[in-house]
Amino acid sequence: MVTLLEVPSTHVNTTTPPPAVDPSAGRRASVDEESAEAIIQIRDLDFAYGANKVLHEITLDIPARAVTAFIGPSGCGKTTLLRCLNRMNDLIESAQITAGSIKIEGVDINDPGVDVVDLRRNVGMVFQKSNPFPKSIYDNIAYGLRIAGITKRSLIDEAVEKSLRSSALWDEVKDRLHVSGYGLSGGQQQRLCIARALAVEPDIILMDEPCSALDPIATAKVEELIRQLKTRYTIVIVTHNMQQAGRVSDQTAFFYLGRLIEYSDTRKMFSNPAQRQTEDYITGRFG
């Protein structure tokens, strides 16, 4: 029987690090031969809020089953780009992609034929502040399954347990599944939100500063969870915490003023970045 969290066969397993950005090539972060291994392919992407262009010619390949961190100062466009990956920006009036494309597993996600609900099921999102529904722990996770038309109780039970186990929360809540999600600590609520995202069997999980409101212990638990999840999911994380980016990610992209400045292996980025702007930012000499 196929379980709800079985890893789809479409996953491409790759450990190939992204090619470093070649400044002479207009900050392109990919080469064609690498594209086949990338689950997300962003090409020459421009994005604007009305007349205000906030992303400029972003080209980036994100490999499957790895953690990719987006870093950069506030307003550099990293969260906007993250939200482009599951079309969350569709909800903002006047916000639009003005050029370029984003393909996930080879499909242009902005194609009129793409079902946005299906896209967001495949590309889950965890936000800066945990946002559980005002429901029980169980129902928080079952919600997305029920929306997807799954009504069989045994299937939902199985998915709830599996999601909670995958988010390292099961042992802490198994005896109180039917109490409100609001009763959990901040760190537990964030892991509940991750479990909720996992329940609908995504390929990709987007995380927008998932630990910014958490204490160091809760942060460590979420980081450990990210480490475990990357064997099965592609994770893209926006973080302002350089140390966190260094700890959890396999590759890091640095953005500044809406442009991708550098994209490389995280170790390389934090030990010997290729671009002066990256060095200045990560060492705290920016501006």
Binding site: M242, Q243, F270, P273, E279, T283
Partner: peptide
């Protein structure tokens, strides 16, 4: 300070 890059070196 948890320095990185050239600072760490």
């Amino acid at each position: 300070f948890q320095p990185v890059a050239s600072d760490l070196r």
